[in-house]
Write a protein that binds this DNA or RNA. Structure first.
Length: 438
RNA sequence: GUGGGCGUAGCUCAGGGGCUAGAGCACCAGAUUGUGGCUCUGGGGGUCGGGGGUUCGAAUCCCCUCGCCCACCCCA
């Protein structure tokens, strides 16, 4: 390759027909499950005002601090947050659309899903890309813990539909409501302030901005220090505690084994009460396939009336890795998508005189008979055409030579068995469709 | 942002100072001028990532640089 040739931007990749088979299967599985659970598709824009993300995700979140693909607003000054940012996650844009669409007043309960690319300006590595596909669902307008459980159920069923089942772990926690968190925040600040000297630089800088982040510090000394820190559950109000209890009950009723994990503290500011992750442990440090939870303050945060909400997001990049590792999904689930890549019929022109009739015949088979029909695009020899026909995976070669053309028929060769029969052009389409079961 | 590994044909890789840089796969053509998958024969394709240096001579040694991958951080 010439050294001045263009390359795809770092952290992105080209998806070619063959590897789109798996992605398309993931997409259709997601759509099917979402539809069965009553979620309708929503497609907000791929970019939003930068302010939307800084507001909803939190100034101190890693995503906002260093992972945003931001475009400056033209002409005007560079005041903070004045530009646009390619969405690093889906929830903020969907919440904004909910508010802008006026749903809070006219139809507050809305269950939506989205499917599409997200963008984060990170250093790429295995299972992490700068552009990646996410499937997410968001349900607005209900504070019921049963809905939290239903969302977890949908998520698990999605993975099960792909063949992942036994290997999955559901981990849940509660983040409390704003009042709980305020009590907890004060307790944490009181706890950490005298100990800051022994903490890492990250912790010291995060102490002021977001004291909760000290809890998921990965520095060994800080982690030990965290063991004696006050726990949220000690500060949970009656309502939050009840919500969590009923969430767990509902999970149990659904037959979902969930592990309580106080270490789950979603990195984005908007979460309240229920939070959960679905893990595939063999993936190690990157085992989280799904993250989600309740965000009762988010709609208000982006300018709407107080409206509860709950949802999750699944990144397809780590999911594809997990599936690959397990040899999933089963081949037969992908067969129809793979077959779509192959022609059913290959039209061969023997001499130059049949090129145009072959082109016309192929057009007819494609458009009028609905058959995936291939035709030599390079004006090659008959031998090379048969070779290509065999390689293409087509079942039949339709051969047009001078004699056939003169007699208004074609010779149809079965590329699996090898036998040949003459078929009149009039009847060719139905003849082929019958044998292809099309 | 920090640390590590690797860059030779479209792909996977050999070659680690000396002839015109190789193999397998893939691609193209022919053997078979109207018939594929197998086989055989031939062919196209490389500024050895880029720049500089050492040397009579560099893909090979040294320096710089770029790119990719992996790990940490964080997350999907």
């Amino acid at each position: 390759m010439a050294e001045n040739a263009f390359r795809a931007p770092r952290g992105t990749r080209d998806r070619f027909p063959e590897d789109l088979v798996l992605l398309r299967h993931l997409e259709r599985t997601a759509r099917r499950l979402a539809r069965n659970y009553g979620y309708g598709e929503i497609r907000p824009p791929l970019f939003e005002e930068t302010r939307l993300f800084t507001r909803s995700l939190g100034e101190a979140s890693d995503v906002v601090e260093k992972e945003m693909f931001t475009v400056a607003r033209r002409g005007e000054g560079e005041e903070e947050g004045a530009g646009w940012t390619f969405r690093p996650e889906g929830t903020a844009g969907v919440a904004r659309a909910y508010v802008q669409g006026g749903f809070a007043a006219r139809a507050p309960l809305q269950k939506w899903f989205y499917l599409g690319p997200m963008f984060r300006y990170e250093r790429p590595q295995k299972g992490r890309e700068r552009q990646f596909t996410q499937f997410g669902v968001e349900a607005f307008g209900s504070a019921s813990p049963l809905l939290d459980a239903e969302v977890v159920d949908l998520c698990v069923r999605f993975f099960q539909a792909l063949g992942l089942g036994e290997a999955l772990e559901v981990r849940v926690n509660t983040m409390g409501d704003p009042a709980d968190r305020e009590r907890w925040r004060r307790a944490l600040r009181a706890f950490f302030e005298p100990r800051l000297g022994g903490r890492c630089a990250d912790c010291r800088s995060r102490f002021e901005r977001n004291v909760f982040r000290l809890l998921d510090c990965k520095v060994e000394a800080c982690r030990r220090d965290n063991e004696s820190a006050p726990a949220l559950r000690e500060h949970l109000g009656e309502e939050s505690a009840g919500h969590h209890r009923r969430f767990l009950e509902a999970l149990q009723a659904l037959g979902l084994r969930a592990e309580e994990d106080p270490g789950i503290v979603r990195g984005l500011d908007y979460y309240t009460r229920s939070v959960f992750e679905v893990h595939y442990p063999p993936l190690g440090a990157r085992s989280a396939l799904c993250g989600g939870g309740r965000y009762d303050g988010l709609v208000e945060e982006v300018g709407g009336p107080p409206t509860p909400g709950v949802g999750f997001a699944i990144g397809f990049t780590p999911l594809e890795l997990a599936l690959q590792e397990l040899g999933l999904p089963p081949q037969e689930d992908l067969r129809d998508l793979q077959e779509e890549l192959r022609p059913q019929v290959y039209v061969v022109a023997i001499t130059g005189g049949e090129r145009l009739p072959a082109l016309r015949l192929a057009s007819r088979l494609r458009a009028e008979e609905g058959l995936r029909t291939a035709l030599d695009a390079r004006e090659k020899s008959p031998r090379a055409q048969f070779k290509e026909a065999g390689r293409s995976g087509a079942r039949f070669a339709v051969v047009l030579g001078p004699e056939e053309h003169a007699a208004c028929r074609a010779v149809v060769r079965d590329l699996q068995g090898g036998e040949e029969v003459p078929v009149g052009l009039e009847a060719l389409g139905s003849w082929l469709r019958e044998r292809l079961g099309a």
